[in-house]
Write a protein that binds this DNA or RNA. Sequence first.
DNA 1: TGTTTCCGATTGAACGTTCATTCGGGGCGC
DNA 2: GCGCCCCGAATGAACGTTCAATCGGAAACA
Lengths: 193, 193
Amino acid sequence: MNVQSETADKRKAILESTLELIRQYGLQGTPISLIAKNANVAAGTIYHYFQNKEAIISELYQMIREEMLAAMFMEENEGSDFRAQFFRGWTNLCRYFISHPGSLIFIQQYNSTPDFKSIKKKTNKIPGDKFSEFFQSGMDTGYLKKMEYNLVASVVFGAIIATAKYHISGRFDYTDGDLCKIATIIWDGIKLQ
Amino acid sequence: MNVQSETADKRKAILESTLELIRQYGLQGTPISLIAKNANVAAGTIYHYFQNKEAIISELYQMIREEMLAAMFMEENEGSDFRAQFFRGWTNLCRYFISHPGSLIFIQQYNSTPDFKSIKKKTNKIPGDKFSEFFQSGMDTGYLKKMEYNLVASVVFGAIIATAKYHISGRFDYTDGDLCKIATIIWDGIKLQ
DNA sequence: TGTTTCCGATTGAACGTTCATTCGGGGCGC
DNA sequence: GCGCCCCGAATGAACGTTCAATCGGAAACA
């Protein structure tokens, strides 16, 4: 096929194939054999690139977490006011999940699969802090009601997940305008009245 | 043990044991053998009461859905005004999940397990309508902003799930007062300003 | 009451399948 | 010919499900 090292390609193919299959069949519904077939690779080859199935899952988890952060803080946010930053951040993350359904499904399944709970702990702390700082700054500058971070988090992140899930499942269809409306609802709930 | 028919007890024990094990080990992490041991029953006995594993899961799903509805519309809501009805309904459902962690975990896993998606369709319609009517009446009587149901649903239900999940996972602790504060955030977001 | 018959409830070993992982070998670049 | 990449059949553990055998109490009969 290509000139460039196929080694990297195979590894990437395995990861992509795994994510795609998990989106379709779920975490426990995608055996190694299927991953191999879908990546045009023999089952044994997978064990050349990864220690075991869990290592694939783990690497996908790390990748997706980084993508999420990158998606949320995509553009320069420094210049604009707090409300605009919030809207951009919220809709960005929501759109990320909507346009990467595999990522949402993966994260949901990963989080509700007790086997993987132990590994998670390592990388848990950083994102929470970043978000919490953002909302704290909103309170300090008088944009937001004074309230604890965990209360805001429930509403803000809960709505992101729910919206993306509804959209992906086909239960509802959300246009860009709808996302803005939802962000407005949330904003009206958290802003200093 | 007891005088009363042990037949009914065994059936119930199997269901309860299954729910408890799923809470601990997840849906695919609880084999029939474990369910049997935990219910003090032989593996074969389970197949006397249920056609197969899926039938147990299915029955649990129906049970929990009914419990959810009952929890949300627990008290008489007819007399009070819309705002009070909303607060009671929201906190009731949230508290239900917090005090029945197995139910939340089960529902989450069930919804994200493609194998069971097909059976779900049968009972999907009724609850959505009930909720949608409730919010529609709020808009008609001038309590809520005019907006489509699916926009409200994302925020309201998203926050319930997220709050209960945070609480159960031990990430945050929510007191009754906290639940009220979250409900207030949401109310401020959806009410007619 | 004592004995026999009968039937649903219960058991757990056995079965067939599926899965993650291993292993021995084949081909290709150096 | 050595090392690396890759293959796919083989392996064994785990699982859902089946089934022939047993249990225990209720009904029938004496």
